[in-house]
């Protein structure tokens, strides 16, 4: 038996579950049903350029960007601590970062609902001290919070895995050559962890742009993101053509940013998850 034959099941799998759906999306995106039957059209894409939809796209990109920046600002120091000499051998701490990912994504997001609700845990706690209740849910802050909470591990893990691989003797060598801890960080640790940062950004930004569950639950439907828009077309309005067109635009955007990211990453072979 030739080795390549082992690949056939995977090939079949990929054709059925990846290639065919993709082709279907392209088909729906570029066609519409008229009296004359199914005809080629660019109407769906034209519709996308209406200001209201462009706004949705921009909002998605903007919120995802904020989420990514916060994840990086929180995640990098956390990774540094986890990879430091003192905690290097305490794998439990890394596990604590990973464990939330074992729980269902929806469940985790619902948990925030009970925390942030008008009569939720936080507001009850605050009113206990006689402070006025706050509107914690259904605003941009809540959406970003949900994204950061859900995607932070995807920032921490790639950075951590790169940091932990940096040879201790390289840092000693820098110290030996006269570098204090600030210089060591700026000239050695940060540049060497760049591949991890790039992977982390990619892994947070992509799902953050396309999420629709978080914005629906925590944003209360007031913050329509591109993911919600696509969901609406397929589930509620039944406009598969427009939904497909939106999906294609998203895919092109993601491919584009992946290409830019991978160009940075290729400059140095390194860890990271890609």
């Amino acid at each position: 038996m030739k080795k390549s034959m082992i690949a056939y099941p995977y090939l079949v799998w990929m054709i059925i579950f990846i290639l065919v759906p993709l082709l279907l999306i392209v088909f729906y995106g570029f066609t519409k049903t008229t009296d004359q039957g199914i005809v080629f059209t660019l109407d769906h894409f034209k519709r996308f350029f209406e200001p209201i939809y462009i706004m949705v796209l921009l909002r998605s990109l903007y919120l995802a960007l904020i989420c990514t920046v916060i994840c990086l600002l929180l995640g990098y120091p956390l990774s540094l601590i986890l990879a430091s000499k003192e905690y290097r051998h305490k794998r439990v701490l890394v596990l604590l970062v990973v464990i939330p990912m074992w729980m269902n994504f929806l469940l985790r997001t619902y948990a925030w609902l009970t925390l942030l609700e008008k009569n939720g845990v936080i507001n009850t706690f605050i009113s206990f001290f006689g402070l006025p209740k706050m509107e914690l849910l259904y605003n941009q802050g809540a959406v970003v919070l949900g994204m950061v909470y859900n995607f932070l591990p995807f920032m921490v893990l790639p950075i951590y895995s790169v940091l932990i691989k940096i040879d201790k003797s390289i840092i000693e060598a820098a110290e030996d050559l006269g570098a204090d801890s600030k210089t060591i960080f700026g000239k050695i640790i940060l540049p060497l962890s760049l591949p991890g940062i790039v992977s982390g950004i990619t892994m947070v930004y992509m799902p953050a742009v396309t999420t629709f569950v978080i914005s629906r639950l925590l944003g209360g439907g007031q913050f329509t993101l591109i993911g919600n828009l696509i969901e609406q077309q397929f589930v509620y309005t039944g406009e598969w053509g427009f939904g497909s067109a939106l999906s294609i635009v998203m895919m092109i955007l993601i491919l584009f940013s992946m290409a830019i990211m991978s160009r940075y990453e290729k400059e140095r072979e390194g860890g990271g998850l890609f």
Binding site: S169, I170, L192
Partner: peptide
């Protein structure tokens, strides 16, 4: 100064920057 067992060169720098590292810090 120390010469380490496994060289411990800075992998993200070229030969010049490796050697110049100590001098640039000063």
């Amino acid at each position: 100064n120390t010469v380490f067992q496994k060289y411990a060169l800075f992998p993200h720098m070229d030969v010049f920057d490796n050697i110049a590292f100590g001098l640039k810090i000063r």
